[in-house]
Design a binder for these strands. Structure first.
Lengths: 205, 205
DNA sequence: AGCGTAGAGTTAACACTGTTAAGTTAGTGA
DNA sequence: TCACTAACTTAACAGTGTTAACTCTACGCT
């Protein structure tokens, strides 16, 4: 016995190897500039082997992004768990989100800036475990903390969280796609976004 | 004489016909799902004819988007030219921007959410006449009006405008790509974005 | 009137793409 | 030793953007 297990381990190993190769190429050249044949070349297998482990190119990307965003969730989790002023903590979370997106532009693009293919199962995607949903829940938690601490007025927390998400997503995606736009300064825009959004919510009726 | 002119007119006509066909297909199916051959089929010319009028597919898209964003600039121009409270006017402009993006998702995506191809001439692009720059100048103008009317504190107008742009771009692009996300309500998010951003800037130190 | 030429539009081809069906080959359990 | 299974490969399909080389029409000029 144990032969089945060994095989399963080997299979998992190759699967991870494909994932790593794809990730590296996606990061360097972007999803649409990486072909299945190039990924195959990198791991020295034939292109069709990839299809044994992944349904298609989109699923391969999806898995790569899942890995990456696990790291974002970890980071946010760390920040949101720290003690101190909840408003400052929320701001730090917003900034961490933006900086994560800029540090992983291709992955960020893939998960939040690409149109879903037709016939995509959104029902399933927007359940608890999608990267959007997970990162999003940190916002609602952060806001609730602020309200409970009396630092923010009572409000529709979901609406406020969605407003926050839209704001930080805007800065992230704009800094990614319009890298050469004459920005006043990357850090200035990032901090201004966090400050303006939080101040705006604090001042809401 | 006049024959040269007539030819030029005819040439311009076909050029516009290509542009219209491409626009319709881009709007319906999105840039990457439209092939040069399909555009050619629609106008009943051979695919290579398009290359006589446009350098490549990207330039075709660029021209299509230029047309569309001409309409946005017109709309913003109308709103910003109206009398009344400058703060309300600015908010109306922000909302109009978002709604325009949602109404033209494929064009919006193409101009603001796509990575530029390698070797793209950014210097030239970020001059006065790029769609981003034109729409952007409305923000600085709107903000200056608010400050002059004493409705907003003195501030770095460029930084504030970039913050605003990031905010409204975020809402626009998120509503486009994550259409099926359980939003509290499209209109609610749109208005909340505009209110939060403006309030946030008003409350800035 | 007839010739040469410019240029609009064509056909055929290249080098790619994602993906699938069919085939090979190695290693297992009986 | 044999059959089977799972891993992997080869060959192919239908499509992509794009280019080089060609045709053909209509104009201006002699």
């Amino acid at each position: 016995m144990g032969v089945k297990e060994r095989r399963a381990r080997q299979k998992k190993f190759l699967r991870q190897e494909i994932l790593d190769a794809a990730s590296e190429l996606f990061v360097r050249d972007g999803y649409e500039n990486v072909s299945m044949r190039r990924i195959a070349d990198k791991i020295e297998y034939s292109p069709t082997t990839i299809y044994i482990y992944f349904k298609d190119k989109a699923e391969l990307l999806e898995q790569v992004c899942k890995e990456t965003f696990g790291r974002l969730v970890q980071r946010l989790s760390k920040i949101m768990g720290q003690p101190g002023d909840p408003v400052e903590r929320l701001k730090r979370g917003l900034i961490a989100y933006i900086e994560f997106g800029i540090a992983n532009p291709h992955h960020y693009r893939a998960t939040f800036m690409m149109l879903f293919p037709e016939g995509f199962d959104h029902e399933k995607y927007h359940k608890e475990d999608s990267p959007g949903m997970q990162a999003f829940s940190f916002l609602t938690r952060g806001l609730t903390d602020c309200i409970n601490a009396g630092k923010m007025p009572a409000m529709n927390v979901d609406l406020a969280a969605q407003t926050l998400w839209a704001g930080i997503h805007g800065t992230t995606s704009l800094l990614i796609t319009h890298r050469t736009f004459p920005w006043v300064g990357r850090d200035k825009v990032i901090h201004s976004t966090a400050d303006t959004l939080v101040t705006g919510l604090q001042g809401a009726a």
